[in-house]
Amino acid sequence: MIEQIVFYFFGGVLLLSASMVVIMRNPIHSALLLVLSFFASAAIWLLLQAEFLAITLVLVYVGAVMVLFLFVVMMLDINLVTVREGFTRFLPVGITVAVLMVAAMGLVVSSDYFMSDTYMVIKSIGPDYSNTKELGLILYTQYLYQFEIAGAILLVAIIAAISLSMSKSKVNKSISSEEQVIVKKTDRLRVIEMKAESNIQSKKI
């Protein structure tokens, strides 16, 4: 009974905050509401006794990703007017698609096939059962191949990010002090012999 109350409470918070993320005008509010929805889904993970996933969600998404996201939003100074542009224009199409999706999903999820009685009830497991260990076991044995590919994907992400954002040349204006110290007059100064202009008057300024 109490589990159900907790589930519906966090489920409600999750739905509400997730839809507010889309509706809110201020991107900072959206980002903060997204944090709230991550918390709510972490709580639902906990109900399923998946404490490792719950903690990871909070640590990684709330702790790292969203904070970074907030920083970027604040730094970029996004113009809200242009973001809002076309909102009403695309609204009918958006709503139609959303309604269709919800209807199709409802049809599928509400049918007998996905009724909750076909799924086993979650057994409560003792305190000596380690979620983390079980996940690690399956990750390094059965899903080793996929795990390695994920590593390669992360490597590509790093390479891509560095090659897109790093520029060695012009932008960097720092001065090398060694070069400054050993510089000589001849390196900087050039004496050019020129003939003096004879008729200055005729030249228009």
Partner: peptide, 25 residues
């Protein structure tokens, strides 16, 4: 031979391609 590897392979490919398209900054 599993949907998971299909997806991961596809992501590895796509991610590299996105970066290659953006390379001419």
């Amino acid at each position: 031979y599993s949907l998971l590897s299909v997806y991961l392979g596809l992501e590895l490919l796509s991610l590299s391609l996105y970066a290659m398209v953006a390379m001419q900054r």
